[in-house]
Design a protein around this nucleic acid. Sequence first.
DNA 1: GTCTATAAATAGATAGAC
DNA 2: GTCTATCTATTTATAGAC
Lengths: 228, 228
Amino acid sequence: MPESATRRRVRSLPPPRRVRRPRARAGDPGSRGRLFAAASAEFARHGFAGANVDRIAAAARVNKAMIYYHFASKLALYQEILGDMFHAVAGRVRDVAASDALPDDKLKRFVEAIADEAEARPHFPPIWFREIAEGGTHLSDQTLKDVASVVQMLVSILQEGVRQRRFRPVNPILVHAGIVGPLLLFFASGPLRLRLQRAGIPAAAAVAREDVVGYVQRVSLGVLHGTL
Amino acid sequence: MPESATRRRVRSLPPPRRVRRPRARAGDPGSRGRLFAAASAEFARHGFAGANVDRIAAAARVNKAMIYYHFASKLALYQEILGDMFHAVAGRVRDVAASDALPDDKLKRFVEAIADEAEARPHFPPIWFREIAEGGTHLSDQTLKDVASVVQMLVSILQEGVRQRRFRPVNPILVHAGIVGPLLLFFASGPLRLRLQRAGIPAAAAVAREDVVGYVQRVSLGVLHGTL
DNA sequence: GTCTATAAATAGATAGAC
DNA sequence: GTCTATCTATTTATAGAC
């Protein structure tokens, strides 16, 4: 099993993080950046186990050995991608929660932040879906904290709304599922919806980002306001 | 690449479906049934590419060669599991849509049908998540039709509601995402929510099925009634 | 229907030259 | 930083005896 051998290696060796990387000119991602991008696409399409390092190298137009020059292993590469994603999402969400907007507005922006990140990194939703399916097996401790912080920020937005008597108390996990579930499903299901459209569902692929964002915002605020 | 070799074989050979299988006594699933169950768990946990036929055989307590006695290939086994899942869901949903209940009630039962199936087959949500992430690559034509029919049944329920002036016209894809997204996320995220709970989110794992079903029902009907 | 043994192919990872 | 060549382990799948 190559994966367990990989893990062993990751545990025993500290990651050789270079503080300043060569070739960091703007416009030229360099081999490391190209590998990172190519690997994101590969992991999204095939999952961690199904991803192939040869394909990653080919797509990045670099030699396979470069993967192991820049990253400790296939797993380390994957984990760096996961970490990058959730660090970005957690940062965005933290900013929203820390702003001085009203709870209603914060919730709307929370929804937009998730949608923005999902759109900016098209590989995020499929990868996140798979990671959920796998119980978050590949999440490092730090990344798990970032994931938790996203939920935690939503909790504090809801609490603030309740304190200000603008929100009714609703289980945050439900609100979270009501927001993240539809958003991820929408952004991850593009290719499948296209196939469904061809299979006889007329409007399956004809939904815009704003429709989904608006739907989720209306629905969540409706529940929190007690309109439902 | 073992997968492409597998596909070639599946295309060239017609599936050897036995009309009456030996050992179909109640209570004894037989080697075929045990393999089916073990494979479902394995595919849910590791995905198609990550699934291992040796582990499947071991979990089913049968010899590995039995997999290839009962099924044409790893892919064929996976596709049979996919087909079984969606055939069951499509059947349930079709019954709901064909009943003479009011549109409101049909929608509630639609939500319950999805939740029932997700609960009855715990491996369904993770497998479905992965299949979505992969664009439905492994879905056979027949199974794709079953998937489409689930959406189609929801469309007809919504149309009926509009005709009876009980529902406002809302994009069915949005309603579908608003129902299936949260439900699948909830049922697929059990293990991850447990980890989040340990990582400091108190109530992450403490949500009951009825909470989610009720939440989704309220929210969807709220949108359709125009209360939002 | 079930088992042993093994073929055949692939994948992750590394050594070492440049 | 980059490349060639290769090692090693694993994996799907099958042949063939019982």
